Amino acid sequence: MAAGGDHGSPDSYRSPLASRYASPEMCFVFSDRYKFRTWRQLWLWLAEAEQTLGLPITDEQIQEMKSNLENIDFKMAAEEEKRLRHDVMAHVHTFGHCCPKAAGIIHLGATSCYVGDNTDLIILRNALDLLLPKLARVISRLADFAKERASLPTLGFTHFQPAQLTTVGKRCCLWIQDLCMDLQNLKRVRDDLRFRGVKGTTGTQASFLQLFEGDDHKVEQLDKMVTEKAGFKRAFIITGQTYTRKVDIEVLSVLASLGASVHKICTDIRLLANLKEMEEPFEKQQIGSSAMPYKRNPMRSERCCSLARHLMTLVMDPLQTASVQWFERTLDDSANRRICLAEAFLTADTILNTLQNISEGLVVYPKVIERRIRQELPFMATENIIMAMVKAGGSRQDCHEKIRVLSQQAASVVKQEGGDNDLIERIQVDAYFSPIHSQLDHLLDPSSFTGRASQQVQRFLEEEVYPLLKPYESVMKVKAELCL
């Protein structure tokens, strides 16, 4: 049975990233139509530049190519590739079939990587351009969430054990800070992308030097003109047959890092959902379990974690691919890159769409948070109580021993009897502590235990987050809708 299948058929496997999760716009960027249309555009740009620099290419040939950029006979191309065992030459023939007058000058002087690699770089750039505003929107939604809850005390956790208090907004800023680093890295790697350009079979530009009869300047002009037509500021000066596969490492490393950030955020949300302090959106008709109707599973956060793990592992592909590119190139890269580049971007696209949807509907339960604080705060307040007693004339050592005994009794009630923490009640009825009984409410005010959390939130948002989001103001209103 021949390899390949009808990918629109229910009898043929289709990647869930495309069929179930990723956005239509990201799927289109990695589609065959987008790819092969870009090949034709690159052939047109090459012909236009070659004509401008004096090669015998007519206006009629150029116009014929322009008129057929979208006229792609995919069936013919597939048949040609089956016959020739070469995808680029299959599309040269297919393009030439609908451009008979231009057929002889299509791909003039070029090698397969002229269309293959340059198209990949265009796709990487455009895919990054799709991700950047999506990530900015996630940051914006979380920034709104953090600002609104900047002063809401909550129990902090280290080692997932109760620690000092923080605020809900401050905790959210930990998430935002990681995503801001990801946004900066995505922008950097996007701006650092260079075009492969017009380089020939081993990167020496020998074929173009021959076409222009040894004119170095025209060869350099050709490279520059096509690079500018493709919208790049610069091209690699040095290439082998391909652009260095280190570029793929750079791009997928940034995406993998984004995956790590999203995994951490969504894990926190899942843990908070278990504590009943916070939940992701839950639709009115949504079913959490087929057997347990009360369940409210954090399905979206779980999906993000599941896909983020996949995204983090994909960076190993370009690392290994770059390491086995012998001399000017081997074909070890080809099949692998067809999979890992598309999957990385479709996965990143999915987790950003999902995280935006989550961040637009996060639900906080202040009463649950308050109750958990009441359970733990008495123990945390013991040092403040000791200091207040010393100020009232008591002995630190005597007070410490009193607190120690009462704390152990209260802990026994919590752990052995399943009761509430009654340390404060014990202190309130103990005559030894009568000098500070009137101060206990103040000493137990949760806001006095959150330090500068709310001020940190305000400063972080104003100095770091809002300036970073400013270039994306025009796209901030787009909502994230999930079908599944």
Rank of each mutant, 00 (worst) to 15 (best):
G197A: 14
T111F: 03
R20Q: 05
H217Y: 15
A110Q: 02
S359N: 10
E25Q: 13
M76Y: 08
R141K: 15
C27G: 11
T204L: 04
V262Q: 05
A78R: 11
G418R: 03
P318F: 03
A90L: 00
F282L: 11
K229P: 03
L307N: 15
M380W: 00
C98N: 11
E360F: 05
P298H: 01
L193G: 06
M89D: 00
Q41L: 10
K35A: 10
E79M: 11
K233R: 11
T167V: 02
R300E: 06
I106N: 03
V115Y: 01
S454N: 13
I427L: 13
V189L: 15
I237F: 08
P10Q: 15
Q375M: 09
L443E: 04
H93N: 12
S112N: 04
H310G: 07
K82S: 10
Y365F: 15
Q51T: 06
I358W: 04
D398Y: 13
A22W: 07
D216E: 09
L443P: 00
Y34I: 07
R149D: 06
Q184V: 09
P378T: 07
L468H: 14
N297H: 01
A150H: 11
T354I: 15
E302D: 02
T202D: 08
M76W: 11
L314C: 11
C99G: 07
I358Y: 04
R459E: 10
T354W: 03
S334N: 14
C266E: 05
V254L: 12
T111G: 02
S253E: 07
F433S: 05
S9Q: 13
Q164H: 04
P293I: 03
L352H: 11
L183P: 04
W326V: 05
K66I: 13
R83T: 11
R426T: 06
K246C: 03
M312F: 04
R338Q: 02
C340R: 02
K264C: 05
R303K: 05
P366A: 05
T267A: 10
S407A: 14
Y365N: 15
Q320M: 11
C172G: 09
E463D: 10
V363E: 05
T38Y: 04
N274C: 12
M316D: 09
R196P: 01
A322F: 10
V226S: 02
Q439I: 10
S9H: 15
K147N: 14
L346A: 11
T382Q: 07
G156R: 01
C27V: 15
L131V: 10
M380K: 05
L423K: 03
Y466T: 13
F36L: 12
F95L: 07
A480L: 15
T158Q: 00
K199A: 13
S395W: 05
A411E: 06
N118C: 13
I424W: 12
R270S: 04
G197W: 01
M292V: 01
S12E: 15
P10F: 13
D349N: 08
S289R: 00
E279A: 08
Q285L: 12
E417F: 09
P24M: 11
V368E: 03
I386G: 05
F345H: 08
C98G: 09
A47C: 05
L423P: 04
I436Q: 02
F157H: 11
R296D: 03
Q325W: 04
T354L: 14
Q205V: 08
V92W: 00
V478D: 15
G259A: 15
C483A: 13
T167N: 03
S359T: 09
Y472H: 12
I436R: 03
G418D: 02
C340Y: 15
S407V: 02
L377S: 02
I72F: 10
Q456G: 05
L341G: 14
F232H: 03
C113R: 00
R337T: 01
Q408M: 04
A110Y: 00
L461E: 01
R303V: 03
S9D: 12
K66W: 11
D144F: 14
I369G: 08
E277I: 03
E250S: 10
E148L: 09
D117N: 00
A22P: 12
D215I: 11
L377R: 02
L314S: 11
G240L: 00
M316K: 02
S407H: 02
C266S: 09
C340L: 11
D59L: 09
I436F: 03
I351C: 11
I237M: 12
L128E: 06
L174V: 14
D120S: 06
G214K: 09
A103I: 09
D11T: 07
G203N: 01
K276F: 07
R188G: 08
T354Y: 05
F282M: 02
W43K: 00
Q63H: 10
F145P: 03
F36P: 01
C113T: 05
W175L: 04
R37V: 07
L42H: 04
L174T: 09
S67C: 12
G451D: 03
L444H: 05
K284A: 09
L272R: 01
R309Q: 04
Y432R: 06
Q177A: 10
W45Q: 13
L222K: 04
T204G: 14
L165Q: 03
S31Q: 08
D87N: 10
L142E: 05
M76S: 12
I249P: 03
G214T: 09
T244P: 15
K218R: 13
D349M: 10
E462V: 08
A344R: 04
A206Q: 12
R338K: 05
S31L: 02
I287M: 08
L252R: 02
E283C: 12
I122L: 14
A308G: 11
A163T: 02
R329V: 02
G96M: 07
I139G: 07
S151A: 13
Q286D: 00
C99R: 05
D248C: 03
I369H: 03
H93I: 06
R14A: 12
N336F: 02
L152V: 08
A291N: 03
T227V: 07
L209D: 13
L252M: 13
L55W: 07
R234G: 11
Q241T: 01
Q205T: 06
T330W: 01
I105G: 09
K147D: 10
I237N: 08
D349A: 12
L484A: 15
R14K: 15
